[in-house]
């Protein structure tokens, strides 16, 4: 079965909504990069961080209803409403809409707020609200609650294996016919501790991310959430593209054989380990757009969105900061996701 992507709701450093991603690809808007001060044993260091420009949630939910909702869940909600709006679909039967979300780190700021309560106020100071909001499945659950969706609801957290697993799960629910639509959401939240860890692991050595420079660590952390509204492929559907193949954990030889002629979007994010493996792929049409949204475990979902926009617009957008022009896109595009050394997930969009 092929999956049809009917709507996309990105919230990232380029802004909120699919048009912000498109204008970013067109080079008309630059990502919001904020300088964070990171303490190190050698003094303070500045770390550029891709921060989301999250705007417009109050169009969908009154502010007072969000008082107990943590910031990560708020951008998850925003991206979900934007995806539904983008698809222009009203759910007639909310019991047949599933929610499957993925995240590498989950709601990190709330997790550390909970720890702050304990450290600052003692063990009796633990906050029930922060605890309930710190669990990984809080964003997916809040989406189901706010939208009244009573289909299946699940959350997967498996770093570079997250995107493939949420898509396979969505496919399974559609295949079993327990749902008509699935909201597939992926995202990660930046927090100061992650910035501290990133610097400790050599990030922030450059002021900009150079994803196609495979020989240097140019990783910069980011934050964002993106939701796709997905359904079974039917011929009359509007939308962006069809996911015709999801191949998990494939080795280098299989990757080389699979991507001979198609343009390939890779989830290179300035990480040296990734770079070494991508270097071996040896394909001329490799492209990376991660310097539009930064690096985080689920950022490959934004690559998938770039692939979808490219399919809809029938063009390959030039890689940011390059001087190249748009190229006409033919029939399909591949998104290639690094899993581990010389092992990748392959997504084919048609």
């Amino acid at each position: 079965m092929r999956l049809a992507i009917l709507g996309i709701g990105p919230v990232c450093a380029l802004g909120s909504g699919i048009q912000s991603l498109r204008t970013g690809l067109q080079g008309k808007v630059r990502p919001n990069i904020e300088e964070k001060i990171i303490p190190t044993s050698h003094g303070e260091k500045m770390l550029p961080v891709y921060q989301p420009v999250a705007e417009g949630l109050d169009r969908f939910i009154p502010k007072r209803a969000l008082r107990r909702v943590d910031p990560f869940t708020q951008i998850a909600l925003l991206s979900t409403y934007l995806a539904i709006e983008d698809a222009g679909i009203a759910f007639n039967d909310k019991s047949r809409v599933g929610v499957v979300f993925g995240s590498g780190y989950g709601p990190t700021r709330t997790t550390f707020k909970f720890l702050d309560n304990i450290i600052d106020d003692g063990d009796i100071g633990a906050s029930p609200t922060h605890f309930a909001n710190s669990v990984h499945n809080a964003p997916a659950s809040q989406v189901s609650i706010f939208l009244g969706l009573t289909g299946p609801c699940s959350t997967i957290t498996c770093f570079e294996h997250t995107l493939s697993n949420v898509l396979v799960t969505a496919w399974d629910w559609l295949n079993q016919d327990v749902v008509d639509y699935v909201l597939v959401g992926l995202g990660d939240e930046y927090c100061d501790v992650l910035g501290f860890a990133a610097v400790g692991m050599n990030a922030g050595r450059t002021k900009d991310m150079q994803p196609m420079n495979f020989n240097a660590c140019t990783f910069l952390p980011g934050e964002g959430h993106i939701t796709f509204l997905i359904a079974k492929d039917k011929s009359h559907q509007e939308g962006y593209a069809k996911i015709s193949e999801i191949r998990m954990r494939r080795d280098l030889e299989e990757v080389k054989a699979s991507i001979s002629n198609d343009p390939v979007i890779i989830n290179a994010s300035g990480n040296l380990q990734q770079g070494k493996s991508f270097l071996k792929v040896q394909q001329k049409q490799l492209k990376s757009y991660s310097n539009l949204y930064g690096g985080f475990p689920t950022s490959s979902a934004f690559d998938l969105a770039v692939g979808c926009v490219s399919m809809k617009d029938r063009k390959i957008y030039p890689v940011p900061e390059s001087q190249k022009k748009e190229v006409k896109l033919e029939n399909s595009i591949i998104c290639l996701e690094f899993c581990r050394e010389d092992e990748f997930n392959i997504y084919k969009l048609e």
């Binding site: 303490p39 989950g106 450290i119 501290f196």
Partner: peptide, 23 residues
Amino acid sequence: CTLNNEPFYRDYKAGKNPNVSAI
């Protein structure tokens, strides 16, 4: 799956620049 190593975070919060091996 939760990033909540308490001893590490206590040191971080106290400005002790703990080793990122915990992460």
